[in-house]
Structures are given as C-alpha cells and as structure tokens.
Simulated assay, not measured.
Amino acid sequence: MNRSYAESLREFMKRKWLSFPILAGCLGLIAVFYILLPKETAPYDDRSLFA
C-alpha cells in the first residue's frame, strides 16, 4: 500500500499543473451543490415552535 501510494504521488508530481484544474472543479461543484441543495435540513413540521 505504501509503495502504491508513493508511486501514484510520484506520478502526480510529474504533472503538478493538474492540481489547479482539479481544485477549480471541486470549487465549482461546491458552488453548484450549494445552489441546488436545500438549505434547511430539518423538516418543515419541526421548527421548535409551540402550537
């Protein structure tokens, strides 16, 4: 496992420039999910109000 990780890291370091498009893609997906996913996680019936 350590050898596999070291080899993959060595290969990635040969193409360091790929980190910027990957980071931009992750930030873009975060923005899309922030817009599309509902903000409230509690159900509408459970608002901690006395009725």
Rank of each mutant, 00 (worst) to 15 (best):
Y5C: 09
R47C: 03
R10N: 10
L9G: 02
K39P: 00
F20R: 15
A51W: 05
A51E: 07
N2Q: 09
F33L: 15
Y5R: 14
R47V: 02
L29K: 09
I22P: 01
R3Q: 13
S8N: 09
S4C: 10
R47N: 04
L49Y: 11
L29W: 12
M1Q: 01
D46P: 00
I22L: 15
S4H: 07
S4R: 13
L37Q: 06
V32F: 07
L18C: 06
S8K: 10
R10F: 13
V32P: 02
A51R: 13
W17L: 04
G28F: 06
R47I: 00
W17V: 07
L23E: 04
P43S: 15
M1Y: 11
I35R: 01
A24N: 05
R15E: 11
K16D: 02
A24Y: 15
P43V: 09
K14D: 00
L29C: 12
K16Y: 01
A6E: 14
R47A: 00
R3L: 09
S48L: 11
L9A: 13
A6W: 09
S19K: 10
D45P: 00
S48T: 06
G25K: 06
M1L: 13
T41C: 04
S8F: 05
P43H: 12
G25E: 03
S4T: 02
P21N: 13
Y5S: 08
S8T: 07
E11N: 13
L9H: 07
S19C: 07
K16S: 11
A24F: 15
L23A: 15
W17C: 03
A24K: 13
D45G: 04
M13N: 10
M1I: 11
Y44H: 05
E40K: 13
S48W: 09
K39F: 07
I35H: 00
F20H: 06
P21R: 08
L23P: 03
G25L: 12
G25T: 01
R47Y: 01
E40S: 12
I22Y: 01
F12R: 03
I22G: 11
K16E: 01
S8P: 03
Y44D: 14
W17Y: 15
C26M: 10
E7Q: 11
A51Q: 10
S48I: 05
R47E: 03
F50P: 02
M13I: 01
S4G: 08
L9V: 15
L37F: 06
A6D: 14
N2K: 11
